[in-house]
Design a protein around this nucleic acid. Structure first.
Length: 284
DNA sequence: TTGACAAAGATCATAGCGCC
DNA sequence: GGCGCTATGATCTTTGTCAA
């Protein structure tokens, strides 16, 4: 076709955004093939392995002929396939990180007002807990940002926020109800805006139909939201609000990987199925 | 109806950084 | 000093618009 890059790169981009953003694709393929060859029974798998297997299934579903290609191909070909997918995945993540970095400021600025002190589109050092607005949004739900010593501890790093402590921005209207943690969960405005930004088109956030070309959702025939796509967006937003300039999965300050996984875990938990179903009905 | 044009996005290439 | 990753400017592609 007209595209010069390998279709696998393209699929890798979508894989990152909607299936799994934080995995080692080569390892995933290798492990999954081993399981397929040994015909491991489903009961013998650990929870993690079962999760991994689901990811693998979705990947096969996404990429035409992938199963045949990796099952019959050589070791070298497998490595090449994994590499192209990985390239697409990291590329997509980088691109999203970049564009959200500037645009997110428009969504966190109250209408008709400006931020005080101002934040800059191309600079992150002043964000995170150093700024009133981003600090309030990132503040873990178990703390109260309006307390001065809470702010102080978060700023100094005395209180380290790990990825499993959820920030306020993932709740609708930034209201967390300790009695009912599901109330408003993952329905925040910023999330919705960021989601549109990435999947529909950046311009679809404030105007209905202005885009002059098809966005990511259409490019990939995406018709529904999925747990991984929302978790991905939440992770991107969390990073965009933070003061760190480098996205790293393992970095202990941002702890993005744990955050992402903790969201996925909740959304995958059979015990929460009802709530999750309601949530995605809302999203669609 | 058509097709040139330019805007809007997607993707690519690479410099720079931290780590071993 | 090499290696792997990320950020970001540069480049390529697609699509809606508008005038003929």
């Amino acid at each position: 076709l007209s595209s010069k890059s390998d279709p696998l790169v393209h699929h890798g981009r979508h894989f990152c955004r909607t299936i799994h953003a934080m995995c080692n694709i080569h390892a995933l393929l290798t492990q999954s093939i081993i399981r397929a060859v040994e015909q491991t029974a489903d009961d013998d798998l650990s929870d993690d392995e079962r999760r991994e297997h689901r990811v693998f299934k979705r990947l096969l579903n996404l990429v035409p002929n992938l199963e045949e290609r990796i099952m019959t191909g050589s070791e070298e070909e497998l490595t090449e396939v994994a590499d192209l997918l990985r390239k697409g995945a990291t590329g997509a993540r980088g691109d999203d990180t970049k564009t959200l970095k500037g645009n997110i400021l428009e969504w966190i600025t109250p209408k008709g007002e400006s931020l005080n002190p101002p934040l800059y589109r191309n600079q992150k050092a002043d964000r995170g807990f150093h700024h009133e607005r981003t600090g309030a949004l990132l503040c873990p739900v178990d703390l109260d940002w309006s307390h001065e010593d809470v702010k102080k501890k978060l700023r100094s790093g005395e209180d380290v926020v790990t990825g499993d402590r959820w920030p306020l921005f993932i709740y609708a209207d930034c209201k967390y109800d300790p009695e009912d943690p599901w109330n408003g969960l993952l329905r925040g405005d910023i999330l919705v805006n960021a989601f549109k930004h990435v999947f529909t088109s950046p311009s679809s956030v404030d105007k209905e139909h202005k885009a002059t070309r098809s966005g990511n959702a259409r490019l990939h025939n995406m018709t529904r939201t999925s747990p991984a796509s929302v978790a991905y967006i939440a992770t991107q937003v969390r990073f965009a609000l933070s003061s760190s300039s480098v996205f790293s999965r393992t970095d202990t300050v941002t702890d993005s990987e744990r955050f992402y996984n903790s969201l996925l875990e909740i959304l995958d938990d059979p015990a929460e199925k009802q709530e999750v179903d309601a949530l995605f009905k809302w999203w669609d």
